[in-house]
Amino acid sequence: MFEARLTKGELIKKVIEALKDLVTEANFDISATGIQLQAMDSSHVSLCALQMKAEGFDHFRCDRSMPLGINLSSMSKVLKCCNKDDIVTLKAEDDGDSINFMFESKDQDKISDFELKLMDIDSEHFGIPDTDYKATVTMSASEFTRICNDLSILGETVAISVGKDGVRFSVSGEMGTGNMTVRDNTSSDTKEADRVEIDMEEPVNLNFALRYLKSFAKAAPLTDRVSLCLSRDVPLLVKYEIPEFGSLSYYLAPKIDD
């Protein structure tokens, strides 16, 4: 028996909104420690890794570890019926072929339940090594969304370079070129939400497809901050930490010159 109840049910809705552009169907691996998901996009260019800790839920019970294969676009449709302040309960039997969603309004005056059929999904799992990244930038999640959306007007590829002057996002396309530089402002009196922290061991300069970054940025409603971790010739890690609940990490393979 699996049962998980979350007062802040909206979090689940936001998680699915942050995944469904990249991943059509995925296994939610449930165990006594929580829920994990690892999935690649259909082009195998990026990898999403979700972690939701059991302690982050108001109630969490999982008698047997198992994968719950779910179509994310169906799940997103079901979650459209969940209101902002609803309490969400997820339930599945050990040998069942469905997952149950229950949405309760805060005042307990409306209760809805939905059942979704589970799918058998043959998914590969990757071992993600602990990487000592050469540059880490932590900034406002909404500002990062803005940068990705704004620069995509000009081109498909962004060069991200972290140097002593800050982190520069550059795009060039048929229309022209654009650069946005964000500087470390930790020494000034910047309010928490707008703080930019740059931790650089050595300069890094890598190219990435903007369309994936734009999809990752859909996770911004989950939390205030995002971290970008870079090292030469390895995937970019874009990490959204959800306080007391878990994290949503995206890995994006770079574009490499011949």
Binding site: T157, A159, P235, P254, D257
Partner: peptide, 14 residues
Amino acid sequence: KGNQVRIENFFAAK
């Protein structure tokens, strides 16, 4: 600008 590399090239399957 640059060739897109696949993500599997970086992570070993478990």
